[in-house]
């Protein structure tokens, strides 16, 4: 595998836009969390009459440089929380105390769709359970798309995309389409896409959910490496207790609320079994 520091030198030049805002999280003596949410609620409508209270008022803080796992059974609201933190959805504003969400010290709740999209493109990286690559684009083009959205184009974008693919050990496969890649490889391309703009925050929704344990370990190692090498903050949602155990901290969710931190992390078997039970119910 390519040496990490070697690659990052190339990438730095192309991602100055994100670099300029870095370090602005400190105000005075106190270090603010990278992400801070209060009173986060989200209700989804299912059909005409049914509603689902996915989040029932959550307070959460993620420190810069942390690698945090959000775990919980299906329907516990962990994905919903991630969508809120990733600015994919806004929190509910009605029926309760006003929600607050700050990212890098900036309030997010009242931002318009365009501004949220811009922050997603430049400051965040996303990894999903089913890889979610654009099927008609090659690995290189998929990674390059994220550069494009962040305002980096042409040769600098190509170089950054190649460097990101090298980081995940796929520079040889740059010209292949997703259909020509294995699941593990596809997820590494998705990881490269999330890393290419060197965002402050990586949000990963079940990144190992469709992978065997060997590939899962690979992805996890790559995430941890960029967390250590780049100081990137990583929030990942997972079912897998082993994955959760590899993180610095675990946020446990149940019924749309965060469980007290003192609760012990359940063994992998129970967690998976519990989920299956819920899924079939």
């Amino acid at each position: 595998m390519t040496d990490v520091t070697d690659v990052t030198v190339t990438a730095t030049a192309t991602t100055q836009t994100t670099a300029t805002t870095r370090g602005s999280t400190t105000t005075g003596d106190r270090t603010m969390p990278l992400l801070e949410g209060r009173n986060l609620r989200k209700t989804y409508r299912l059909g005409r009459t049914n509603t689902v209270n996915a989040l029932r008022g959550v307070d959460v803080a993620i420190e810069a440089g942390e690698m945090v796992a959000i775990i919980g059974p299906s329907g516990s609201g962990k994905s919903t929380l991630m969508h809120l933190l990733g600015l994919l959805h806004g929190p509910d504003l009605n029926h309760g105390p006003r929600p607050e969400l700050s990212f890098a010290g900036q309030p997010m709740v009242d931002l318009g769709e365009g501004e949220r999209t811009r922050i997603r493109a430049r400051e965040m990286g996303f990894v999903f359970q089913d890889f979610n690559l654009v099927p008609t684009l090659t690995a290189l083009e998929n990674v390059g798309l994220a550069c494009d959205y962040a305002g980096v184009r042409g040769e600098p974008a190509r170089q950054a995309a190649l460097a990101a693919l090298a980081l995940v050990g796929l520079e040889e496969r740059a010209g292949h389409r997703p259909a020509e890649l294995s699941g593990g490889e596809q997820q590494r391309v998705a990881l490269a896409r999330s890393l290419v703009n060197r965002p402050r925050l990586i949000l990963a929704d079940e990144p190992t959910g469709n992978l065997d344990s060997e590939r899962s370990a690979e992805i996890l190692a790559l995430l941890r490496r960029s967390n250590l090498a780049e100081g990137q903050t990583i929030v990942l949602v997972t079912h897998d207790a082993e994955v959760a155990a590899a993180c610095d901290r675990v946020i446990r969710m149940r019924d749309g609320r965060i469980q007290p931190a003192a609760s012990p992390v359940p063994a992998a078997e129970t967690l998976v079994a519990g989920d299956r039970l819920l899924a079939t119910a």
Partner: peptide, 16 residues
């Protein structure tokens, strides 16, 4: 639809 979802999620603007 899904592809458009991906593009929007990773920061593709509506205009794009």
């Amino acid at each position: 639809t899904r592809e458009i979802g991906i593009k929007r999620a990773i920061g593709g603007s509506r205009r794009r």
